[in-house]
Design a protein around this nucleic acid. Structure first.
Length: 671
DNA sequence: GCTCCTTGGGTTTTT
DNA sequence: CCCAAGGAGC
């Protein structure tokens, strides 16, 4: 795509001052961003003065690679990364200004956050069971809007707001005492720091002359504030995004950021990229119908196809998910046999739980696939367990990690003993870890618990000495895995030898990550702690070269990607739109959620360049119970002339021969 | 008091 | 189908 259209040109050549690029799907967005940076560099801006923030690691990676192709190795001087990575970078460098004088803080992922809330709920002794995620989502929303616990409590709300008002202050306090930051803090704490320390803010402002934000529609309020602080002086802020692809409101994203950009940054230039270079007209017609039925407030725009004609969309109705998966794999196989590259095929679904039959169907046919997302590598239990041990080493105040491993593998420290340790820690105003390492001097602990504490403390202290002595992290991790009995527990605790092998494989993969870290020559507690923090942002597994394989992914997971052929599976009411957005009883819904589902479907449709299949099953078992399924409203809304429908039924030999048998019987009767 | 086993309840998307 | 709370043995 060497020829630029006038809109692309004006976005690239815009010089100074705020710029909003409304980049429709497939309109050459990444090209515009990278060319714009390249042009700045070409005209004398040093790459290190450029800050480009994205939303996902994948997008950052993509941008960095493409920029390097344009401007050469100098591009590496530019700061390109996710908002959270940038936040971590600032907080790490400014650790002293933050009160983490030793720099030994942990980053809490969602599981850790949930653990903290669970502890708090237990302490409150609520007689009711609460949905922890609903509470966390409210806390997160409040944090991102800089609503302090007191202000939150002063507001009136529903029952979940009430319980959140109780949990929120304790949650903030808990994280502080654990020396931990959650994902939201990585942004919010930077904003707070910049607001309170003009000198620090000035330093970072001077460093970055130009600020770019990709996928701007996905930013939340705190991110807007960060962008404002970084850019309000020189006002060289360029944001790129598409409100029609805003699909992260559930995570706090506020689409008003992109809708109101011109108010936030007066005098902004606005460029709309509406030429679509990706999809055929046939596919784009479907996309346009989907998005124009939206009732949400949007920037008015209409994608115009540059590829006329094209194959009609196929709507596929299968009897059940296995048949659906079988059809998709067979059809993919057929297209691949006709010369299509596997890497040009993707299968998209609403939630990871739907991937299983599809993955199985591809594997049965020996078509190579990669499954994006799913249980993230660093969230697998065995990996998290080992990480928890290492986090206790590098950040001993991280009580959530300590609680995770204090009695795993089992070493005699049961709930009662743990409670006693915690009480003792609280009374002496010391971290829980101190209580564990001095368990023998705590009265009222059962002998097995004392022994367990001694064993745990012994292992960790030995590991700690080795760490300080400069031993490689991988060796220390191997020591921990072996001496704690983690290794033995994997063998004993797995349901099958296959499962055990897989878990061992995950551990081995994590050890390889540590080995690579060791090879970089970095040693010691603080270096390992820094690695663990970076890893917690790096949720993608370590596969940089996927090879020539079919992609299986959630609709969220493929934003920004494109494929010749796209299958969307499970286009059923209750899946897309998801039941949770339709169910009034759900604790977190509002009416905008269905519109977000629509945009999500739109994102899925616009991934396809040449062929689009929208598949659904008539029956699907959810949670073990089989249930009849109806087509998604996004399907029934489509005018009939835009697609062809085909029905696929189970074609297993038994069914087939039964049909043959009946046909034969009928034929005989005819005579 | 701890561990194991059973039971029962709950499942979106991701930095 | 997988994790978290509850009940019986050591």
């Amino acid at each position: 795509m060497t020829k630029l259209n006038p809109d692309q040109k004006s976005a690239i050549e815009h010089d100074r001052g705020p710029l909003l690029v409304l980049a429709g799907a497939g309109s050459g967005k990444t090209m515009v961003v990278t060319h714009r940076i390249a042009r700045l560099v070409g005209r004398g801006t040093p790459p290190r003065a450029i800050l480009a923030m994205t939303f996902t690691n994948k997008a950052a990676e993509e941008m960095a690679v493409r920029l390097e192709k344009l401007v050469g190795p100098g591009a590496r001087e530019a700061t390109i990364g996710t908002f959270h990575a940038f936040g971590l970078r600032v907080l790490t460098q400014e650790a002293r200004a933050l009160g983490f004088h030793d720099g030994r803080f942990a980053i809490f992922d969602q599981a850790d956050q949930a653990g903290a809330v669970r502890e708090i709920l237990r302490a409150i002794r609520g007689n009711r069971k609460y949905d922890i995620w609903a509470i966390l989502s409210r806390i997160s929303k409040a944090k991102n809007e800089f609503v302090e616990p007191e202000q939150f409590a002063a507001r009136k709300g529903d029952e979940y707001d009430d319980i959140t008002a109780l949990v929120y202050p304790r949650y903030v306090e808990a994280l502080r005492s654990f020396h931990a930051l959650d994902f939201d803090d990585l942004i919010c704490e930077v904003v707070r720091l910049f607001r309170r320390r003009q000198d620090v803010l000035d330093k970072w402002r001077e460093r970055y002359w130009y600020v770019l934000v990709d996928e701007y529609q996905d930013t939340n309020h705190a991110q807007l504030e960060l962008v404002r602080l970084m850019a309000e002086e020189h006002r060289n802020i360029c944001v790129v995004g598409d409100d029609d692809q805003s699909i992260y409101a559930w995570r706090g994203a506020d689409v008003r950021n992109i809708l109101d950009f011109e108010q936030h940054f007066p005098g902004a230039k606005v460029v709309k990229l509406q030429n679509n270079y990706r999809s055929t007209d046939a596919i784009l017609s479907v996309a346009n119908v989907v998005i124009h039925k939206s009732s949400a407030r949007r920037h008015e725009k209409r994608l115009v196809a540059t590829r006329p004609g094209g194959e009609k969309t196929q709507v596929v109705v299968a009897s059940d998910p296995e048949v659906e998966a079988g059809f998709i794999a067979d059809e993919a196989q057929r297209l691949i046999n006709d010369g299509l590259q596997p890497r040009n095929v993707a299968v998209l679904y609403r939630s990871n739980a739907l991937s299983e039959p599809i993955e199985t169907a591809f594997r049965q046919r020996e078509i190579p696939v990669r499954v994006l997302g799913g249980t993230q590598f660093y969230e697998r239990k065995e990996v998290k367990d080992l990480i928890a041990y290492l986090r206790v080493l590098t950040s001993p105040r991280d009580e959530i990690s300590l609680r995770r491993i204090i009695n795993y593998p089992a070493r005699g420290i049961g709930p009662v003993a743990l409670e006693r340790l915690a009480t003792h820690a609280l009374a002496s105003d010391k971290p829980l870890w101190n209580a564990v390492s001095q368990a023998s001097s705590i009265s009222g602990l059962a002998p097995p618990a004392v022994a367990g504490c001694a064993s745990l403390a012994g292992i960790l202290q030995q590991a700690s000495h080795r760490l300080d002595a400069g031993e490689p992290a991988a060796d220390i991790a191997r020591f921990v895995v072996h001496d704690t009995g983690l290794e033995a527990d994997i063998a004993a605790g797995s349901s099958s030898s296959q499962a055990a092998a897989r878990r061992r494989g995950n551990l081995a993969a994590f050890l390889r990550v540590l080995e690579r870290f060791d090879q970089s020559g970095r040693r010691g507690r603080d270096a390992l702690g820094a690695l663990l923090r970076v890893l917690s942002l790096n949720t993608e597994a370590e596969e940089k070269d996927p090879g020539n394989v079919v992609t299986l992914a959630t609709m969220h997971g493929t934003k920004g990607l494109e494929f010749e052929v796209v299958f969307v599976a499970g286009v059923e009411e209750g899946i897309i739109p998801h039941a949770r957005t339709l169910d009034a009883r759900a604790t977190d819904v509002d009416s905008q959620d269905v519109e977000e589902e629509r945009r999500l479907f739109y994102v899925a449709v616009t991934r396809a360049k040449a062929r689009l299949y929208l598949c659904r099953a008539r029956h699907r078992s959810l949670r073990g119970k089989p249930a009849p399924r109806t087509p998604s409203r996004f399907l029934t809304e489509l005018p009939e002339e835009l697609f062809d429908t085909r029905e696929v039924r189970d074609a297993t030999p038994t069914t087939q021969s039964m049909m043959d048998g009946i046909a034969g019987l009928l034929a005989a009767l005819e005579k």
